[in-house]
């Protein structure tokens, strides 16, 4: 019997493409956000509200993933920014190749913001690096406060948590302080913004956060370009 010792990441091919994509995003100064949440958490509505509030001159684009239908892309296109649907036909997550295939020409034209709406799922998308700057997990008040404990991987890997649908709080037995405590028990550094797409609560801090992060990414790209000149 011969044992061959190997150190090979299972998703090494995905990681290779994600690294290439990340390099391209770094070069163009594009802030890329990977939104992950359960089906029905409000990812598409959150992006709709975000696009609605973006200045029209912003160079932003969206790729949105679903198993079937163009429904989300149709919704998101109403705000005047380029949107592409990735239909995974059964796959429970987006992978780096799917994203690269759908955004390469946009990156050549120059983008400030790239929103990636992943397939509704708190498990599988966690494993796949898409070359993004950060993962954003969206949890809604219609779910359980213990979601961070049940699905620790995504809460651990996310830099920001959106607690969405807070307009439902008077009507549902959801304790937001417990959800926040659970999320911080998994990831003490996670930033949290509470939002409602119905009342627009929380969208001022979210848009400010987004603007700051995009400016930081752009500045980093300018510094890099100056250093390599």
């Amino acid at each position: 019997m011969n044992r061959v010792t190997i150190e090979k990441k299972v998703l090494s091919e995905n990681d290779r493409i994600a690294a290439r994509l990340r390099e391209a995003l770094t070069g163009t100064g594009t802030l890329a956000l990977n939104f992950i949440g359960s089906p029905g958490a409000g990812k598409t509505a959150f992006l709709e509200k975000t696009l609605e509030r973006l200045p029209v001159h912003t160079r932003a684009a969206v790729v949105t993933g679903d198993l079937q239908t163009e429904n989300d892309a149709i919704r998101l296109r109403r705000y005047g920014f380029p949107v592409r649907q990735i239909t995974t036909v059964g796959a429970c997550h987006l992978d780096a190749r799917m994203v690269e295939d759908h955004v390469s020409d946009w990156l050549q034209e120059g983008l400030e913001l790239l929103f990636i709406e992943n397939v509704g799922n708190l498990v599988c998308p966690t494993s796949y690096d898409l070359g993004e700057d950060l993962k954003v997990v969206i949890l809604s008040c219609a779910e359980g406060e213990d979601k961070p404990l049940k699905y620790p991987g995504i809460f651990r890997k996310s830099e920001l948590m959106i607690l969405n649908k807070i307009d439902l709080l008077p009507h549902v037995p959801f304790r937001p302080e417990l959800a926040l405590e659970n999320a911080r028990s998994i990831n003490p550094d996670i930033a949290i913004i509470q939002t409602s797409c119905i009342t627009s609560a929380g969208f001022d801090p979210w848009m400010n956060w987004l603007e700051r992060r995009a400016a930081r990414k752009k500045a980093a790209a300018s510094t890099l370009a100056a250093a390599t000149r």
Binding site: M1, N2, R3, V4, I6, E7, K9, V10, K157
Partner: peptide, 13 residues
């Protein structure tokens, strides 16, 4: 841990 990696393969002749 978030590790996901192949560590070894065994063969017989």
């Amino acid at each position: 841990s978030d590790d996901l990696a192949i560590s070894f393969i065994e063969f017989d002749d």
